[in-house]
Measured scan of single mutants.
Amino acid sequence: NKFNKELQWATWEILNLPNLNEEQVKAFIDSLRDDPSQSANLLAEAKKLNDAQA
């Protein structure tokens, strides 16, 4: 389904953001699992944090 694909994509993207530490990655992945419908928003937040920590 749509959420499953978005969840998989967001998870992959977050795992590959180079500037997030392990705790941050875990927190984003946990949030994705808690509410897959928020995957686009969570991915945007993760990318923003990744850029800020570059």
Score class of each variant (00 low, 15 high):
2 K>P: 13
46 A>L: 02
11 T>S: 05
13 E>Q: 13
41 N>E: 12
11 T>W: 07
4 N>F: 14
51 D>L: 14
45 E>H: 08
38 Q>L: 09
28 F>K: 00
44 A>G: 07
54 A>S: 09
43 L>K: 02
41 N>Q: 10
39 S>R: 06
2 K>A: 15
24 Q>L: 03
43 L>H: 03
32 L>P: 00
27 A>H: 09
25 V>M: 08
40 A>H: 10
26 K>L: 06
52 A>P: 02
48 K>N: 06
41 N>G: 06
14 I>A: 01
9 W>M: 13
22 E>N: 13
43 L>Q: 03
32 L>W: 02
12 W>A: 14
32 L>T: 01
4 N>M: 08
10 A>S: 04
24 Q>K: 01
2 K>H: 15
10 A>I: 13
20 L>G: 00
14 I>Q: 01
1 N>G: 07
9 W>F: 11
49 L>E: 04
14 I>P: 02
50 N>D: 11
48 K>F: 09
33 R>Y: 15
18 P>M: 13
16 N>W: 06
21 N>K: 09
32 L>R: 00
36 P>Q: 05
38 Q>G: 07
42 L>S: 02
21 N>D: 07
49 L>V: 12
8 Q>E: 15
12 W>S: 07
52 A>E: 13
49 L>S: 03
12 W>F: 10
39 S>T: 08
47 K>M: 14
28 F>S: 01
38 Q>N: 12
22 E>Y: 13
17 L>H: 03
5 K>W: 04
41 N>K: 12
22 E>H: 13
34 D>P: 02
53 Q>G: 04
29 I>H: 03
26 K>M: 08
1 N>H: 03
52 A>K: 14
36 P>F: 11
43 L>I: 07
42 L>H: 04
46 A>H: 00
45 E>N: 06
19 N>E: 04
25 V>Q: 12
15 L>V: 06
41 N>H: 12
20 L>M: 02
46 A>Q: 00
23 E>L: 12
20 L>E: 00
26 K>W: 10
29 I>F: 04
43 L>R: 04
39 S>E: 03
32 L>K: 00
32 L>Q: 01
32 L>G: 01
39 S>Q: 04
52 A>V: 09
33 R>N: 15
47 K>W: 08
46 A>M: 02
37 S>Y: 06
37 S>M: 08
12 W>H: 13
13 E>S: 05
20 L>K: 00
6 E>S: 04
17 L>N: 01
37 S>I: 06
34 D>I: 13
33 R>L: 15
2 K>R: 07
9 W>P: 02
6 E>V: 06
27 A>L: 11
22 E>F: 10
1 N>D: 15
25 V>Y: 05
18 P>G: 06
25 V>W: 02
25 V>F: 03
13 E>V: 13
24 Q>P: 00
26 K>E: 14
47 K>L: 08
6 E>M: 13
11 T>A: 09
50 N>K: 01
44 A>S: 09
43 L>P: 01
3 F>R: 15
26 K>G: 06
8 Q>P: 01
7 L>R: 01
25 V>E: 02
22 E>V: 13
52 A>T: 13
49 L>H: 03
8 Q>T: 05
45 E>Y: 11
5 K>V: 05
25 V>P: 00
47 K>N: 11
35 D>L: 06
52 A>L: 13
48 K>L: 13
49 L>F: 05
48 K>T: 07
31 S>L: 12
35 D>I: 04
1 N>R: 03
28 F>E: 00
24 Q>E: 04
2 K>D: 15
38 Q>T: 11
37 S>R: 06
44 A>Y: 07
21 N>M: 12
34 D>L: 10
52 A>W: 08
48 K>Y: 08
9 W>T: 06
38 Q>R: 10
23 E>R: 07
54 A>N: 09
17 L>T: 01
45 E>D: 08
36 P>E: 03
22 E>I: 10
21 N>R: 08
8 Q>D: 04
2 K>Q: 15
42 L>R: 06
29 I>V: 13
51 D>R: 07
24 Q>F: 02
12 W>E: 15
35 D>A: 09
16 N>V: 04
5 K>L: 02
7 L>H: 03
20 L>I: 04
37 S>G: 07
48 K>I: 12
6 E>R: 02
1 N>Q: 06
17 L>S: 02
8 Q>R: 05
44 A>I: 11
17 L>F: 05
7 L>K: 01
36 P>W: 04
14 I>Y: 01
